[in-house]
Design a protein around this nucleic acid. Structure first.
Lengths: 135, 135
DNA sequence: CGGGATCCTGGGCGATACTG
DNA sequence: CAGTATCGCCCAGGATCCCG
């Protein structure tokens, strides 16, 4: 393992329920969240780095405005996305990744790459498992 | 899907609602799962690479045997964990990471590292957000 | 346009049994 | 020891309506 941070040295070695592992899960859940990854990915590729609420709404197939709001609020609270209100009529709100959010983009990219690289392997494993258990 | 795979290969998604992004989410949910990361992490550090059901049960604070079973079955189905039954009395079942599972360990490790590196930043962002919104 | 408020439902998850 | 079976709570998240 690459991260041998001092305080963490004995990290998961003994207890997976160690606070730092718990905190890690908090963030991992954001990654595992149904919509967050879509939002982060889109903002990461947006021309100019910003997108409006309605642009995201249209770009993410199947999301309701409520869930988009909830997702964006969560990301904003974690400092991953910033929200800029333009006091004009009609209202205009721009979202963009913060610097912190952009570093996540890198990290997520690696996970997605892993997924792409192993999708067939996973599908095969599932098929094998399912056929093994459908008797 | 190999034709599209070429188009996707360089980057994880032109459109976040693209099929490959959907499939990615499937795997990301495994990462975001409440217990999977604990299991993977523990197995990754187990002496000899294997752990028994009861060892995992004791090591993961708060998990019920049902959720441990469900988690292990999901990981086994995805080809991340392998399950070996020893036909002895009392029963003995060993779990260990597959080679595929071990590559995930690396990937997860990077995410956890990211988390460790940015936890304070996230906490600060949350505190700032909360105080900004508690009026 | 960009949300908030409300209601409602599915199923994830935990607790508590019981078994080979 | 290593699970399975069953029940029931709870809340994430979808639908719908409304507002500044």
């Amino acid at each position: 393992m690459s991260a041998e941070q001092a305080g963490d040295a004995e990290r998961a070695g003994q207890a997976a329920h160690h606070p730092s592992a718990c905190r890690a899960r908090e963030v991992l859940q954001r990654v595992g969240d149904k919509w967050s990854v879509y939002v982060i990915d889109l903002l990461g590729q947006a021309a100019g780095g910003t997108m409006r609420f309605s642009e995201l709404h249209r770009a993410i197939d199947g999301i309701t405005s409520r869930m988009l709001t909830v997702t964006l609020r969560g990301l904003e609270r974690d400092g991953i996305v910033s929200r800029t209100i333009h006091p004009v009529i009609p209202p205009r709100v721009d979202y963009e990744l913060t610097p912190l959010g952009r570093t996540l983009l890198d990290t997520i990219g690696q996970l997605v790459s892993w997924t792409d690289a192993h999708l067939l392997e996973i599908d095969a494993a599932r098929a094998a498992y399912d056929s093994r258990h459908e008797d």
